[in-house]
């Protein structure tokens, strides 16, 4: 979980930085999107790097889901008879929503790919003009799309908060002081990442990016 999670987190960071290029203007953003397809050329033919990265990510996602499924099944098998009185929850909400949160995030990712990668669900869907696609996507009259993005990203934030701490722990973080640090770092990271992602749709919504 930790290793695949970290791969996905690295991607999320890069993806967020890329998104923020939307504030540098339409030409710059479209140029960036085009550049992504050309990384590695002329050593690799055009779009090859992108496909390599996509493959790695897909494998990581599948492995992440696979490991999560194994853990869920083990957890389910480990307690065949549930408690009649619901167990009280003492620790943070984030840790308790990893599984359903993961499912929501997966559904979101599928939608997101169909929306802004393939363009099937995008009102504009022009592969040559990603900037326009984004602006069209988060247009004020499509507020429900923005709302869905917000919900999904907040879920992602929770997922990251516990996931990042848990990754530290799984990889051997072992002192109480380190634990406090790891927890704070995970929280800050989750908040920054979610904020970084959310500024884009809100910028479109408020007309800052048009």
């Amino acid at each position: 979980m930790a290793v695949t999670g970290i791969l996905l987190v690295l991607f999320l960071i890069l993806h967020m930085l890329g998104n923020l290029k939307v504030f540098t203007g339409e030409t710059s953003f479209d140029h960036y999107a085009h550049w992504l397809r050309e990384i590695g050329t002329p050593l690799l033919p055009s779009t090859w790097y992108l496909w390599i990265q996509r493959t790695v990510l897909a494998v990581a996602v599948l492995a992440h889901i696979g490991a999560a499924t194994v853990l869920s099944m083990r957890a389910h098998a480990a307690r065949p008879v549930p408690y009649a009185h619901r167990r009280k929850i003492h620790v943070n909400y984030a840790a308790r929503t990893m599984r359903w949160g993961g499912v929501i995030i997966l559904l979101f990712v599928i939608y997101h790919i169909l929306d802004l990668t393939t363009g099937h669900l995008n009102p504009q869907g022009d592969p040559a003009n990603p900037y326009g696609n984004v602006v069209a996507d988060f247009a004020p009259e499509r507020w429900y799309v923005t709302l869905f993005y917000v919900l999904a990203l907040v879920t992602l934030g929770f997922h990251l908060r516990h996931g990042a701490f848990s990754a530290f722990r799984s990889l051997g973080q072992q002192t109480p002081k380190g634990e406090r640090r790891a927890r704070s770092a995970a929280l800050v990271f989750a908040v920054v990442l979610v904020a970084g992602y959310l500024v884009v749709p809100f910028a479109v919504l408020t007309g800052l990016v048009a």
């Binding site: 853990l71 098998a77 480990a78 929850i89 003492h90 840790a95 308790r96 799984s170 973080q173």
Partner: peptide, 25 residues
């Protein structure tokens, strides 16, 4: 047949002897 650990921390909260969670690390 115990389940796997996902670092939630309910165990340490319930432990009557205060065994710290970082032992799992």
């Amino acid at each position: 047949g115990f389940g796997g650990c996902t670092n939630i921390g309910e165990c340490a909260a319930a432990c009557p002897k205060g065994i710290p969670l970082n032992t799992i690390g």
